Amino acid sequence: MVRFSAFSLSIFTQRLSLLGISLALCCLNVSQLHAAPTKLGAASFETYISDDGEPARVNTLLEKVFQKAELDIQLQVMRQAFLGSSVLTGKLDGEFAYVNLGEDSSNYVLSDIYLPIYLYAVSKEADVEAIKLFPHLKDNRVAIENRFANTPSFRLLKDIKWSRNPTTFDAFRQLADDRAPYLITTQLLARELNILLANDNEETLHFSAKPLAKTGFQIAISKNVANAERIVAQFNQAVSTMQNSGELNQPLDLAWLTKDVNGDGVADFIGHSNITTTSDLLNTAYSLDGKPTSEASAFYIDGDRYASLEEARAALPDAESSSPRESLLDKTTYQLLLRRW
């Protein structure tokens, strides 16, 4: 009969345990190595989202964020009509440019807003500057893109004569052709059209007194995805860190951003030496949290805090050229619109 001493059995058991742990860790590493990426989709949106090489702020921004967050995310751009069904059938795990304007989001785990959207009324005429609320547009013809018009928030506004458009270009053409005196669009898109107009020596758009609606881009991951909460948490942390350090200025092509970085209730100015120069004006700053700036606002350059604009500008490179930057809207595409302006 074979006998094992207590000492021998203990060593044998320990080795078996260590072997089991090693195999388990090996399997886990192999599983992680070959895990499928999380697939998120979005519809194309001029200057924001594209898959054909056109300027796309959201694509560029998210590439940086996912890298920072060490997330394996695959982005797919598709037609709006296919987006919802692709998530429902599991072909996609969610959306990477989700905009909530009254839709039911209960099936999603939503991130924080990573890029706010401010919807303004704009016009060729200065009278739009008196508009503060949607009721002020009552009985007027107003151009709008379908992506906004086909949402619960806008379907409830029945006293406005909406002129719906499938694309950004079509919506802007409503103004160019004087078929609609007003347009509802995002602040950043209106700015890009103004750059195009100014560079062509045309009259620029006027803005309503304030945004008529506020929303923003989020990532929305189906609750059926097992690690959705973890992905969103890592994403939120990376976005916040990069906003505060100015790492998102360049992907957004914005010299100054504002956000309450130090938690005192007042928005601070955020710049980065890769894009912000001494000649960039503060009134072009884009708000990341909707909070107002004041004389108490601090200035952050590359994540470093400065008490005054003069100190902050001392840390910035001098402007190499005074020539205006080109619009993110394609000038060739918009040439016909400019001729009609």
Rank of each mutant, 00 (worst) to 15 (best):
S106G: 11
A121E: 02
Q250C: 12
T293Y: 00
T276L: 14
T47R: 10
L28T: 14
E192K: 08
F148S: 02
Y182G: 03
R15V: 13
G94A: 05
A307V: 10
D264S: 05
I11F: 13
F148N: 02
F96N: 00
V225E: 00
Y48T: 06
L92T: 03
Y118G: 01
R173A: 04
K161N: 13
E295C: 06
T168G: 02
A296G: 06
V128E: 04
F66V: 07
G41F: 03
I275N: 09
P324A: 11
T186K: 02
L156F: 15
T276E: 13
I21H: 14
S106A: 14
D264R: 02
T204Q: 08
D72K: 12
Q234D: 11
N224T: 05
L197M: 09
V239F: 01
A56F: 06
A149M: 11
P251G: 02
N194C: 05
L175S: 01
A143E: 00
K291D: 01
S287M: 02
P211C: 09
T277S: 10
S106K: 15
L71V: 06
K124Y: 04
D104P: 10
L338G: 00
L329S: 09
D72L: 08
D304K: 14
L9S: 07
A319C: 15
D280N: 15
N262H: 03
S240V: 12
K210D: 13
Y118K: 04
L88W: 03
A209S: 15
Y118C: 02
D112T: 05
K64Q: 12
L282E: 10
T332G: 13
L62G: 09
V142H: 00
T241V: 12
T276Y: 11
L133G: 08
I184Q: 02
E70C: 03
A228D: 00
L88Y: 07
Q80I: 11
Y118F: 12
A24K: 06
E203K: 12
V232T: 06
I270G: 01
L337H: 01
S106Q: 13
V142W: 01
A36K: 12
G90Y: 03
F82L: 12
W162H: 11
R3M: 10
G303M: 04
S322L: 15
A69Y: 03
T258R: 00
F169V: 05
G20R: 13
T278C: 14
R191C: 03
L28W: 14
E229M: 03
T47F: 07
D318E: 15
T284G: 14
T241Q: 12
D200Y: 01
Y334W: 07
T333I: 15
Y48G: 04
Y286I: 09
R340Y: 09
L193F: 10
A307C: 08
S245G: 04
D51L: 08
